[in-house]
Amino acid sequence: MIVEAPASPLARYALRRADDALILGHRLSEWSAMAPTLEEEMALSNMALDLIGQSRALYTYAGEVEGKGQSEDDFAYMRREREYQNILLVERPNGDFAQTMLRQFFFAAFAYPYWLAMMRSTDATLAAIAAKSEKEIAYHLRHSSEWVLRLGDGTAESHRRLAEALEELWPYTGELFAVLPDETALIAAGVAVDPDTLRGEWEATVRAVLERATLAMPSGGWMQQGGREGRHSEHLGHLLAELQYVPRMIPGATW
């Protein structure tokens, strides 16, 4: 049974944020048994579990709001690629460790002030999810920024890799601030956060860390968009094939 997009703007909004968290969490989980050290293996898995937990709360809430009995699993496993509305940044392949950490840093530098602002949402459930997520993301931001610093200001090799990651990922940061037409009313009602109000803080955080990491902050430039409208890179389909394989092969399987 394929799950169609919800009709309720609030459910769609929660779903988009859930998709960001699930896809990024899944990407981090791909490091399991592959991380450079045991210590980092655990750090990456911990962050993955935080994000997957956030996605579960948001999917569940989207199902409640929509009121058609859709569960978190229905949304995660039974939607097609085009129905996923995560930003393209989170589906970028892990690449090397520098790329993974910089992707995490870009996302956390946005998500931290986002959840802080969301704690004041007029929607009690979103405010509660925000209160839990804020603490988790605060740690992701700290951990990833410490690594960005060390990679940028480390060896010639680590600096080169981080500089390449910056070039690769920068065009995907614009979509962090995208607002879809059905979200403006939610923003006006104080339910959703206007991402534009977070741009200054995001840029200040990123600039401060990149400068200490001896990398120049890129200035604007062309930005890739599309994930929020369901237009994805070729990488998401492969990710979903792995993520959705078991529940589609054996519907209703439990373990």
Partner: peptide, 20 residues
């Protein structure tokens, strides 16, 4: 115990390894 390059990362790794 754990391996870490410096004190800051050691504290973060301790959090990630031993306080789950």
């Amino acid at each position: 115990s754990l391996h870490a390059a410096d004190a800051t990362l050691a504290l973060q790794a301790a959090r990630d390894l031993y306080t789950r």
